[in-house]
Nucleic acid binder design. Structure first.
Length: 231
DNA sequence: GCGACAG
DNA sequence: ATCTTGTCGC
């Protein structure tokens, strides 16, 4: 990617950035459907493919009420800091297949915890027009700030503060697991995002079940498609 | 120039 | 992300 094209991508991020609002636009009591989004990749010859899986859960029962997937070519490369440009095309196609309308989307990756506050969860909120949360499995360092390891207790967290602003949290979702890196996407506050994330974590994973189920679906889907494409 | 680098 | 999906430990 040359400087010219990078400038254009950054301009899009900067435009969205001004509109970020980390306040709830919904009533917690009315949260009915929460979606988990994930993508898996593979290569066939010279072409990169991806499958986006979305799992929609009933927030009260935590049961899956709808699942969709979309397989397509992936043309945009992975560039740290610009993940949304690679993943959003498939995500938007997958969402077109949904018959339900999730109140909130959870992403595998960061949101506000990003050098321009434009991780995929935040970026996606503007194109999906829904509140979002980002949960990343590994730390994406911003402004040379290291995260402080939270206590080894379920629900323990440390804020990730850059220049006096809280960008996200290192959150210990369970005892004896590595923390996840939680950040707001948009139209939600960090405490609410933390509460929802903790509520959705069960015994099987340190990730919320939304993301976990999407991750599993993605794994199966990739196995299917990759095996049935000759060569 | 070197290293780091969500997924 | 992807090479790996059985195996060890609680």
């Amino acid at each position: 990617m040359n400087n010219h094209s990078e400038r254009q991508l950054r301009a899009i991020q900067d435009e969205y950035r001004e509109k970020i609002s980390l306040h709830n636009t919904f009533e917690k009591q009315q949260l009915a459907l929460v979606a988990g989004v994930d993508i898996a990749y593979w290569t066939n010859g010279e072409t990169d493919y991806g499958v986006c899986c979305i799992q929609v859960l009933d927030y009260q029962t935590k049961k899956v009420v709808e699942a969709v997937e979309y397989v397509g070519e992936v043309t945009f490369p992975y560039i740290p800091g610009y993940l949304a440009f690679r993943e959003l095309p498939l995500i938007k196609e997958a969402i077109k297949k949904l018959t339900s309308a999730p109140d909130l989307y959870m992403f595998d990756g960061n949101g506000y915890l990003h050098h321009r506050n434009m991780g995929i969860a935040t970026h996606a909120s503007f194109e999906l027009e829904k509140p979002t949360i980002g949960v990343a499995k590994t730390y994406f360092k911003v402004g040379n700030v290291d995260f402080i390891m939270p206590e080894n207790k379920k629900g323990a967290y440390t804020d990730i503060v850059v220049d006096g602003t809280i960008y996200g949290r290192a959150l210990r979702t369970r005892v004896d697991v590595k923390p996840v890196f939680l950040s707001c996407g948009n139209w939600i506050d960090l405490d609410t995002a933390t509460e929802i994330t903790m509520y959705l974590v069960e015994k099987e994973s340190r990730l919320p079940v939304t993301t976990r189920y999407a991750d599993l679906a993605t794994y199966e889907a990739r196995r299917m498609y990759n095996n049935s494409e000759g060569k």
